[in-house]
């Protein structure tokens, strides 16, 4: 077994274990960290394939930006409360066929690739080293794969605008509603304390006063 094969096996093993951890961990922050680890392993595999540019982009975009934003969102939520709730819903009936379908589709796609027939197999080491270079990738992306590339960016833009539209719609009304609810809640707490019904460890914080 030569060195690249050994590195490949180690990276693949870590990737599989950590991606299992992504779905099996109870704490979503831990899941996110394992997702980042999986991404790093995949980036390592890309380096082994001489695709340094793709490896670097993968780390910058996924590990550096997207998962950080996941963490950012999760930090704003009450995770310790969420971990106590039931983690499994009764969606197995729907999820199982979709999962089987996905595995079948991916298996068919992988099986359809004729590895020995690929042009890469006939290349010399030097040519193979230049295959994943920035110049080659850019040329392919902007000539042979221009349409899918532009379509993908269009889909992403549509998704982004849609998300802003959904989130922005009526946000002010809702904010006002939350403020009224919090004020009412605070009021009841004060009354309860005056009446001596408040739990001793319950903290008395005015609405909007914390995390500001």
């Amino acid at each position: 077994m030569n060195a690249p094969t050994a590195v490949f096996i180690v990276l693949a093993a870590v990737a599989v274990v950590s991606s299992l951890n992504v779905i099996l961990r109870r704490n979503p922050v831990h899941s996110a960290i394992f997702l980042a680890l999986t991404i790093l392993c995949l980036a390592g595999e890309f380096v082994l394939l001489n695709a340094e540019f793709i490896a670097a982009t993968e780390v910058i975009v996924y590990a550096g930006a997207i998962i950080v934003l996941f963490l950012f969102t999760m930090m704003l939520l009450d995770i310790r409360g969420g971990m106590r709730t039931r983690q499994f819903q009764n969606q197995f009936g729907l999820a199982a066929p979709i999962a089987v379908l996905l595995v079948a589709l991916l298996g068919a796609a992988v099986g359809a690739i004729n590895i020995s027939g690929l042009p890469a197999a006939a290349l010399s080491t030097l040519q193979a080293a230049q295959l994943g270079s920035v110049q080659n990738l850019g040329q392919e992306l902007y000539s042979n794969f221009l349409l899918p590339f532009e379509l993908a960016s269009l889909v992403l833009t549509v998704g982004l605008i849609g998300a802003i539209g959904l989130a922005g719609h009526g946000a002010e009304d809702r904010e006002e509603q939350v403020r009224i609810e919090e004020a009412l809640e605070f009021d009841t707490k004060v009354r309860a304390k005056e009446g001596g019904h408040l739990e001793p460890e319950e903290e008395l914080v005015p609405a909007g006063g914390h995390h500001a």
Binding site: F53, A56, T57, V59, I60, A63, G64, A65, V68
Partner: peptide
């Protein structure tokens, strides 16, 4: 790119 990628992990 390596430098930008690694420094983005620092966060």
């Amino acid at each position: 790119l390596y430098l930008v990628g690694i420094s983005s992990l620092g966060v």
